[in-house]
Design a protein around this nucleic acid. Structure first.
Lengths: 253, 253
DNA sequence: AAGTGGTCTAGACCACGCG
DNA sequence: GCGTGGTCTAGACCACTTC
């Protein structure tokens, strides 16, 4: 007879050292890592775990929530708690400027997008400055959720001058392909990368727990002429993305 | 008479819509952002907030903990809850290879390190492969906490072949400066960047809440000859770092 | 010693999902 | 309808800081 999930929980009550919820958390973590429970398996209900481990349900929830935030477990309201599927990491280069669409196609992944926003708007003061808009010129905003192999990967919010993209509704797949057609494909871009904890809305869109780590990337793209083409704020799932950069010895300056 | 913190909490009880802890969380967040309470100020105790807002202390803690994780508040056991000081973001280039020490000196920041580990060790199998070690060769490991202007910024764990750094104890400031002396300064490096939620130990070292977002950077550095000099795993505070990269149009390949 | 955050409990009700 | 997770309560004790 092999070790069961219940045995794991029973050990928690007897053990000693450190807060209860941390011991419980490590027990569950070990059970997942050791393969005792596999991706997609359901855990016992919170009430059952509490009864077996002889702790209160509040304590069970505290242990589980840490694991949910770290992407190890997934909770579905009304349904149960499950071991999260493993997400294969995607690598993206930080030195060559490639489009998301083309990048994924090269990897043979099925890509689709859900539109969050798409149209022409009156620019915010910030947008006017960044894009160098003439007065009264509108901006095209396109925001979408990027989904690869049915897994939400990133939220992308781009804004461009209306003169560069007069008809944002015409974008179907790749923004860069569209820019190509009109000779406005950028040749250079500056990116700022930072780590953030996801808020409730973005977490819901990406299908992860609020507070999960993500990469926030702000990109400004330039034409060969030096004119700014687009300004994009993206949020990438931390558990699904690795960015790869090649560095060279900096000039002594 | 101006609006006080207590007024803010009293409004929560009356309001409607959404869970209590979220309404309370937003109230505190607004009070911080609007400048009603400033960096360093103490909040009322959890018990006081609970009494004023007429909610249970558990609910107060849930609201506060979200703000702690996002770096807006700081809690000190036995002392109180305070508004977090603003951390000025540091930018680091992702295209030129510069040393942390030199980078900070250029900005006029006071830099110091606390050693976490420094010495010669028997390599792990993984290290042998990465560094291309001859059999029986040892590895030098140096791990340190990087502190700029008395604010912990990053944890850096480097490993090098003993033949390249025979005396890790001799490192005082810059690893790269030491490598320079022996003609082993790298000219090229590959970096992988990902977002993670900090675990308890790393969070404690960096002085932030467990679960806070951070950037994990794995770097492998090469000599002109192609030999690997060092392999470094670093963890950078997400609220203190912006990495900046310049991208160029990718070759169609 | 007094006050603070950290942990824990037992029990309640609500909102969602699934058969 | 039943079981699940989500929210909330009132009260207890512990560990730590400050005086």
């Amino acid at each position: 007879m092999s070790v069961t999930m219940e045995d794991v929980f029973r050990q928690v009550a007897g053990g000693s050292g450190g807060p209860l919820y941390l011991r419980l958390q490590k027990s569950i973590e070990d059970a997942v890592r050791s393969g005792l429970v596999k991706a997609g398996d359901a855990l016992p209900s919170e009430r059952d775990i509490a009864a077996i481990a002889d702790v209160s349900r509040v304590t069970v929830r505290k242990a589980v929530q840490h694991l949910v935030r770290d992407g190890i477990l997934i909770q579905r309201h009304g349904s149960g708690t499950f071991v999260a599927p493993e997400v294969q990491k995607v690598e993206q280069s930080l030195s060559s400027l490639t489009s998301f669409t083309e990048d994924m196609a090269r990897r043979g992944m099925t890509l689709r997008s859900e539109w969050l926003e798409r149209g022409l708007y009156v620019p915010s003061p910030e947008e006017s400055v960044i894009l160098g808009l003439s007065s009264h010129e509108k901006v095209a905003r396109i925001a979408r959720l990027r989904i690869a192999n049915e897994i939400p990967m990133a939220i992308e919010r781009a804004t461009l001058a209306a003169s560069i993209l007069p008809d944002p509704g015409a974008i179907t797949d790749s923004l860069y392909a569209k820019l190509d057609e009109t000779g406005n494909r950028p040749v250079r871009a500056l990116q700022r990368i930072a780590a953030i904890n996801l808020g409730d809305t973005d977490a819901a869109l990406l299908g992860v727990a609020p507070g999960s780590a993500a990469l926030r990337i702000e990109r400004t793209s330039y034409l060969a002429s030096g004119r700014i083409v687009e300004s994009t704020r993206s949020v990438y799932r931390g558990d699904a993305y690795d960015f790869v950069a090649e560095l060279r010895l900096g000039a002594p300056e």
